[in-house]
Structures are given as structure tokens and as C-alpha cells.
Design a protein around this nucleic acid. Structure first.
Length: 95
DNA sequence: GTGATGACGGAAA
DNA sequence: CTTTCCGCCATCA
């Protein structure tokens, strides 16, 4: 297994630290390189809560599966998007 | 080794 | 409101 870079490490740590009922954006997990966050979720073998990661505008990337999981956690929706003004999680408080 | 791809973001038109 | 374009970085072919 390859040693995770500092940026990858941040992505892993951030996603793992998202509390139930909240979400974080790709940009929050990987500032300056949001595509990296997407790549990590695609290729990692770690058990991460991938459904709690949404686009910067609150729209989902994994359609109904993601919607169902978030809805089950009580994440507030505004139409087809997550209401980030309520459910957004800010990783700066997390290690 | 080079080039294309993608679970993105933000600005511009 | 929508569409287009460029930057970003690990993985894939």
C-alpha cells in the first residue's frame, strides 16, 4: 500500500470525522484540489462515510443511494440538494 | 514515459 | 437561472 500524501491524509481524516447528520464538500476535504477528494473516495479501500461528501452547491454525486443514506441520518434537503446552510460540517475543529 | 479521465470548484458569459 | 472553460492531482490506458 502506498503511503498517503499529506493532502490525501487530510481527505481521509476529514471524511472520517464528519459527524452523522452533517456533510462536507469536496473542496473542504481537499482545498485547491477537489478532484483529489473524488479520486480518494473512488480508489480507497478504507471504510469511509462517502455519502457525507457532496458538491460545493449541495448537489449529490451518487444519486439515489447517497440521498437515501443522508435522508436516513436526518440531513436536511432543499429539493435535490443538501441544505448546506444547516448541515454543513466545518473540518477546522477536527484534528 | 505521455496522454486521457474523473465521486470537483469557481469564475465568466 | 444555465452553459462553458480552466485548474487541480491521483489513477488508468
Amino acid at each position: 500500500m502506498r503511503e498517503p500524501s499529506q493532502q490525501e491524509q487530510r481527505v481521509l481524516t476529514t471524511i472520517a470525522g464528519i459527524p452523522e447528520g452533517f456533510v462536507a464538500t469536496y473542496g473542504d476535504c481537499s482545498p485547491g484540489a477537489p478532484r483529489l477528494a473524488g479520486a480518494v473516495l473512488r480508489y480507497t479501500d478504507r471504510p469511509l462515510p462517502w455519502w457525507r461528501v457532496v458538491r460545493a452547491d449541495g448537489s449529490l454525486t451518487q444519486g439515489s443511494r447517497q440521498h437515501a443514506l443522508l435522508d436516513a441520518e436526518g440531513v436536511p434537503f432543499k429539493g435535490a440538494r443538501v441544505d448546506l446552510s444547516i448541515a454543513r460540517y466545518f473540518p477546522e475543529d477536527s484534528p
